[in-house]
């Protein structure tokens, strides 16, 4: 509660002295354990701000709303460490300028919420490096271990079963801060690479393409997983791809705002084991 109060005061101050034009945070949702995004422009709105351990949504996607940052004014945003990584990736992909983003960092253990030191993306590099070296224990997923132990056939059957529920609502895409394209590949129908109907092939196509488009970019914030109305464990795919990228290229997504995108950059010592 202390953290929440402190941040309310900070946001009010920064709004009052004109440092930021808006702060993006959380407010109560429809049930006690749900939170909604809050867009704070006034001191009164700041009083609605909630910050507790249930604030888990990665809000960074709101920053790439068209026109929000084009006036070059600063915007504040409440972010967990993975959200800060998202900011770094968005900056590395030229979707925003980190100098315009004021970060209100926080993290939680159990029900305890604590603030993170720093305001600019660059202030958190030590913290992010620490997370890269020692990933938090909570990231260990029992289901992922189970899936990885399966053979190819079992794994295919598992995903076929999971994907069979997919209704192609693209909520995963809407929730993901990385899916900022003006036109998504699934919206392109000349040609229609990805079938829109929800049968096995189309479902695989969509989810595999999504996995590839996020490899080296996903920070495992879990937005897609929570957004899925049919509970497909999308996080498993993302975690697996993130591991591949770390193992193959030592690339931990979102470490800095100048990190080159792993799949677009080339180094002379990149392994080429995939070339027959």
């Amino acid at each position: 509660m202390i953290t929440q109060e402190k941040y309310r005061t900070t946001v009010k101050e920064l709004l009052a002295n004109g440092t930021i034009k808006m702060a993006i945070g959380y407010r109560p949702g429809s049930t006690p354990d749900r939170r909604r995004p809050l867009f704070i422009r006034t001191s009164e709105e700041a009083d609605q701000l909630v910050l507790d351990s249930t604030c888990i949504t990665n809000l960074s996607g709101y920053l790439v709303t068209e026109g929000l940052l084009s006036d070059e004014k600063q915007v504040g945003i409440f972010l967990r460490p993975e959200g800060i990584r998202s900011i770094n990736i968005l900056a590395a992909e030229y979707q925003l300028n980190v100098d315009q983003i004021v970060i209100f960092g926080f993290d939680s253990t159990g029900r305890e919420v604590r603030p993170l030191q720093g305001r600019n993306a660059g202030d958190f590099s030590a913290l992010l490096t620490e997370i890269k070296e020692n990933p938090p224990l909570t990231s260990k997923e029992p289901l992922l271990e189970r899936v990885e132990k399966m053979n190819a056939k079992e794994r295919f059957d598992f995903w076929q079963e999971e994907f069979s529920r997919c209704i192609k609502c693209y909520a995963c895409r809407q929730a993901c801060p990385m899916c900022y394209c003006r036109r998504c590949i699934v919206d392109s129908n000349q040609p229609q690479w990805i079938n829109t109907s929800s049968h096995t092939l189309g479902n695989f196509e969509w989810n595999v393409v999504r996995a590839f488009h996020l490899s080296g970019r996903c920070v495992q914030c879990g937005n897609c997983d929570r957004a899925c109305p049919v509970n497909i464990p999308l996080r498993l795919i993302n975690q697996r791809m993130a591991k591949e990228v770390v193992d193959g290229f030592d690339h931990f997504a979102g470490l800095s705002p100048t990190q080159e995108p792993v799949l677009a950059s080339f180094k002379k010592d990149d392994t080429e084991t995939f070339i027959l």
Binding site: Q95, C181, F266
Partner: peptide, 15 residues
């Protein structure tokens, strides 16, 4: 140009 998101991945990727 209508759909380009300006991520500049192509700029890096172009040999």
């Amino acid at each position: 140009e209508a759909t380009c998101a300006g991520c500049w991945g192509c700029v890096l990727a172009c040999p």
